[in-house]
């Protein structure tokens, strides 16, 4: 049985690297990533599960890191935006105007990345089902939608 009574040393597997942190059981993964590991790509936008700016991948699935305790994911694979590089979706976001202020972008990228890894041929309905988990106030979602479509094309030609 795992038991954490107080501040505890926990080991996280982040972007393929083992990282030891000292955290409270009540610390959310979002806070630990940002404040203990310096991975500030995950953003707090509400800390209430509503905006998706804090999205990270746990074992490949998008999760809101503000709704997750760090102690819960000790044995899981965590991917943050810092763990993605030169992916099709990142390229597409640049080419198709997937962002403006950039604050929602990490969350959208990780969610979209997971979507396309799971369903490379996702249709509009599936794309909507996944992406309605995130809020963006700048783009009106047009650029994000175009980016997903463009990334799908790129993935086909991988």
């Amino acid at each position: 049985m795992i038991a954490y009574k107080d501040y505890a040393s926990i080991e996280l597997l982040v972007n393929g690297e083992k990282r030891k942190v000292f955290a409270r059981p009540a610390d959310t993964l979002l806070r630990v990533l940002r404040e203990k590991l310096g991975l500030t790509g995950a953003k707090p936008g509400c800390e209430n599960g509503d905006c998706g700016a804090c999205t990270v991948l746990i074992d490949g699935k998008p999760i809101k890191s503000c709704l997750t305790l760090a102690v819960e994911v000790g044995n899981k694979e965590i991917t943050t935006i810092e763990g993605l590089s030169n992916t099709e979706i990142q390229e597409a976001f640049i080419e198709e105007g997937g962002f403006q202020c950039g604050y929602c972008t990490s969350g959208f990228l990780l969610n979209s990345y997971a979507l396309l890894e799971t369903h490379p041929d996702a249709d509009d309905k599936t794309i909507k089902e996944w992406l309605e988990s995130n809020l963006c106030r700048c783009t009106g979602y047009e650029g994000i939608e175009k980016s997903i479509k463009a990334a799908q094309e790129k993935i086909k030609n991988r």
């Binding site: 991975l39 500030t40 953003k43 810092e82 640049i94 962002f99 950039g102 604050y103 990490s106």
Partner: peptide, 18 residues
């Protein structure tokens, strides 16, 4: 292309709270 494209698509853009 926007000058900030790389930073903003890699989570490296630093905002005040970071």
């Amino acid at each position: 292309t926007r000058l900030d494209a790389k930073e903003k698509t890699t989570g490296k853009q630093i905002y005040i709270n970071d």
